[in-house]
Design a binder for these strands. Structure first.
Length: 483
RNA sequence: GGCUCCGUGGUCAAGUGGUUAAGACACCGCCCUUUCACGGCGGCUACAGGGGUUCGAAUCCCCUCGGAGUCACCA
């Protein structure tokens, strides 16, 4: 087989969504695994859908994901340009060549006429299909009209009978009857090619050997193969990837507010976790294993681990992956990453972020959840006195009152609020007063935090709060309990 | 609706004619414990349904049902 050349060919319509990211990932992995070439090509032939700045967004996402490409608009290569609108003039000659051989023909029907006929057909309950009306215009007349400046498109001349098919590396042989196929437009009135045509011409010109793309193209691929045959070109090997779903019936789509790769990064997901999770959504490694770095994915990737059915994007599992990756993060990286999130809730409070980070490191699932978890340090939340009652800790209001009454002067007498002395003090106090550890610690922690659960125990929180604020909060609790 | 494709627990999934049908997330329980997490141990839940083929089907065939994709001068 020739050297493997693959491509990721997104349209610049906004952020890179997760389905696109997965396609890019698999394509990249396949290329790298086979020591092949990975290419980025921008398919921007639809000028109406083009979103300004989207191309740069794609470069950025690819870079952030670590999916480096060997050829592309911003890195160059021997098969450029890699942006289709910059290739606009090279498609027409190929279409003209097809007209010569009868595999295509110019069509002068206007969009409006077509739409009327389409509407009429649906009104009758029929499915519209172009009737090859313009195919029957005499060759000379057609040529004259094309040269006269009359708007026209070029359509593929699909045989009326017979079958068209192709071999998919994942789905096997796929075949359709030609009569169910429409004569699609190859070159639009604006002179730009449609996807149907551009992808065939470009994949051939760029010597692409393997095409990986979503299954939305599965049913139209036989038509593309007809084009390859008409040109006498060798078609690439196709690998169609099942779509990524949001739930059982809807696919993941940015239009419906589902997160893009960039969104997830902004929310505090780490890119390694996203990639790892995405890789396993529709692909399964040979070995029993679920943690992979990008290089490890390259090593492990193989086509027959791919699944044929759509996979539902399971946010909970992504969150789990993320928390695992955060735990594996070295501490300094965690501290650096978490600090801006601490700032959101604690700016100017003088909290010891390093100590807080130690406590939070093993409990952080997604960074955007951090501010809510630490906000109690800045401001004591409103809480009900019933919070002091905890069955497992064997505490009730009376126990809490006793514990806090004892703790208050003992803590006030402490010269510093370091954790060790704090702990020794409270433990000793519990023991000497006949209280269980929990009966002392629970009330103190609740008084300090106003929360049923916190990222740390009573002594850690007392340290973070400092002596003054801690005593203030205990006094408040004492008031509550005495009322 | 036509065409194409898919169908193992709630989710991701292993499985390619003979298995007690893995594993992970989630969930539940227990242990650990100054809360909550973490961690450890254990548990619940699946071959869409019906026909075949076969000594034997999650695995092969057919039908039904369910779901998805696609039917543009969008990609």
């Amino acid at each position: 087989m020739a050297d493997v050349r693959t491509r990721f060919a997104p349209s610049p319509t906004g952020y890179l969504h997760l389905g696109g990211l997965r396609t890019a990932l698999y394509t990249y992995l396949f290329a790298r695994k086979n020591n092949g070439v990975f290419i980025l090509r921008i398919e921007d032939t639809d000028q109406e859908r083009e979103v300004p700045g989207a191309v740069e967004l794609i470069y950025q996402s690819m870079r952030e994901a670590g999916l480096t490409y060997d050829e592309g608009p911003d890195v160059g290569g021997a098969y450029g340009p890699y942006i289709q609108t910059q290739r606009r003039d090279l498609y027409l000659p190929y279409a003209l060549q097809l007209i010569e051989t009868g595999a295509a023909y110019p069509c002068f029907c206007t969009k409006e006429e077509l739409q009327e006929r389409r509407d009429a057909a649906t009104a009758r309950g029929e499915q519209f299909k172009y009737d090859k009306h313009c195919l029957h215009i005499p060759r000379d007349e057609a040529k004259r009209r094309m040269q006269s400046g009359e708007p026209f498109v070029i359509r593929q001349n699909v045989p009326a009978t017979g079958v068209a098919g192709f071999e998919d590396a994942l789905f096997g042989h796929v075949e359709v009857a030609c009569e169910t196929l429409d004569d699609n437009v190859l070159i639009k009135a604006d002179g730009l090619p449609t996807y149907n045509f551009a992808n065939v011409v470009d994949d051939h010109l760029m010597a692409i050997t393997h095409v990986m793309r979503g299954t939305e193209y599965l049913s139209s691929t036989p038509k593309y193969n007809l084009l390859y045959e008409a040109f006498g070109w060798q078609a690439p090997i196709y690998v169609h990837l099942p779509v990524v779903m949001k739930d059982a019936t809807r696919k993941l789509s940015k239009r419906y507010g589902d997160p893009s790769f960039e969104d997830l990064l902004a929310q505090g997901f780490v890119k390694e976790a996203i990639l790892n999770f995405i890789a396993l959504l529709g692909w399964c490694p040979k070995e029993e294993r679920e943690f992979f770095t990008l290089p490890e994915l390259v090593e492990a990737f193989d086509l027959d681990g791919l699944s044929k059915s759509p996979a539902i994007f399971n946010m909970e599992k992504l969150v789990w992956f993320n928390s695992e990756y955060i735990k594996k993060m070295d501490f300094e990286t965690y501290l650096r990453t978490a600090t801006p999130w601490f700032e959101q809730a604690l700016a100017g409070r003088g909290v010891d972020y390093r100590r807080l980070a130690e406590l939070m490191h093993g409990r952080t699932e997604v960074f955007n959840r951090v501010p809510d978890m630490v906000r109690f340090l800045a401001e004591l939340p409103e809480y009900e006195v019933e919070l002091f009652t905890h069955k497992k800790m064997k505490t009730d209001l009376a126990v809490a009152l006793t514990a806090l009454t004892l703790a208050r002067p003992a803590l006030a007498a402490l010269p510093t609020f370091d954790e060790e002395p704090l702990k020794e003090c409270l433990m000793a106090l519990a023991e000497s007063s006949g209280l269980k550890t929990g009966q002392m610690m629970w009330p103190v922690r609740v008084a300090l935090s106003g929360l049923a659960s916190t990222p740390g125990g009573a002594t850690e929180i007392a340290y973070l709060l400092g002596k003054e604020e801690s005593l203030r909060r205990i006094d408040l609790a004492l008031q509550k309990l005495s009322a």
